[in-house]
Simulated assay, not measured.
Amino acid sequence: MKKSLMYRFIPAVLCPILAMGLTACGEKVAQSAEKEPSVVTAEVPEQKEYSQEAKESIEWLRQDMALEENIAGAVAYLGYRAQDDKTPLTDWMKLYNMNLIEMMPFLLEIPEENILGPGYGNVYCIVPRDETTSLAVNYVTWKTTGTESHAEASEILYRSEYAEPVLVFVNTQGNAAEPDIEINLVANNGAEATWYPQVDEYHDPILPMNENRELLLMDFWYYGVVTGLEFPENLNEYSWWSVPTEDQIAFCNWVNNEWSIFMYQDNADPPYAGTVELYDISDMNYDLVYTGFWCMEGDCLRLEISDYNGYVVSGSFPVLMQPEGYSLHVDQDRETGVCPPFSEEGMTSADLWQAYG
């Protein structure tokens, strides 16, 4: 009470000063109120300003992801970068992924702060499903309990509720099944994925699946594969791919989502190199549908096959093989427009990959 009375008897000469102070305080409150929206927007970090071409490629990729509700993000394996490789990263990516970069130019514009890891090892690009997808990238160490190993996060490399594309360098701890990186994605639609980046012997990412065996991440490396409409009249235009030999495609199990193809080199009569079997695997079973003969005919895969009802498919289908030899691109017959059975309905080309077995 004494303090209250004392304040009432402050000399009048101080009143103007107090009034000025109150005015200043009022201005500060007003300024604070004006700035309040920036506190909210601060939770949404300013996105890297990509070129228009790069923005369009990201948007294109995200539109494809939006077609599948369970997809939380897209990934591409870009290759292995040696520890002593001093090539600028953008030049290194151009050397090994030029065709993909032409389709996805944002790869060369990912900012330095979004390039994660030691700068060597297996290189992956991770693209969140949309602008409201959260992404966490952690270093992990692997612990063994009994007969099982599990990963424990040891360091946060990246974390954002509004994630941008990132490049991640991944190494193993002497075990290819124990990478030192953990990827966690949670999309706004509820799709989520936890992934420990690995590739198989054909350099394809081993992607996580849900209980219904649906992929949770999309591999966009194949955007670098020419489409049926772009299939070259002049093969030199795509010199990084080449026409395979019969030896390169024989005795391999070539697959896509619905078909499995086996081509053998056996006692078929010339000009055929051997017999071929086409299995329908769409229902997770191997149902033999077509049998017949095959050979390479110039830059074409020649097929003469029929089903058990006598329906015949005959054609010479232009074919290219990816440099590492684990992917084929097969186009429709140039003269007749006939497509091989393993082409999807409405498509003029098909991609096949080597599978185990």
Score class of each variant (00 low, 15 high):
M209N: 06
E324G: 05
N285V: 11
A350N: 09
N138V: 07
E304I: 15
E178L: 15
E246V: 12
S349M: 02
M218R: 03
E27C: 07
L157R: 05
W254R: 03
I17R: 00
N122K: 04
Y286I: 14
M65I: 12
L217I: 13
M347T: 14
D204P: 01
G190H: 10
N171G: 12
R129N: 13
E335V: 15
N257D: 14
G228P: 03
L78E: 14
Y308D: 15
L216W: 04
T141H: 03
R129F: 12
V338H: 07
F342A: 02
T275W: 05
H150K: 01
I101G: 01
G79H: 10
Y272G: 11
R81P: 08
Q198W: 01
Y238V: 10
K143Q: 13
L157S: 09
T144N: 04
M103K: 10
P341C: 07
K2S: 15
E109C: 04
G228F: 02
A72F: 04
G298P: 06
P37F: 11
R129I: 12
L320M: 11
M103P: 00
D204Q: 11
Y158T: 05
M263Q: 01
G119C: 09
I181Y: 00
V29M: 03
Q198H: 02
I156W: 00
G121K: 00
N267S: 15
P244G: 10
Q332N: 11
E258A: 06
T133E: 00
E214Y: 08
R129A: 14
A193L: 06
I261T: 06
N236M: 08
S32K: 11
R334L: 09
G21T: 13
V330C: 05
E109K: 02
Y223H: 14
S282R: 06
N253W: 07
G224M: 02
E178W: 12
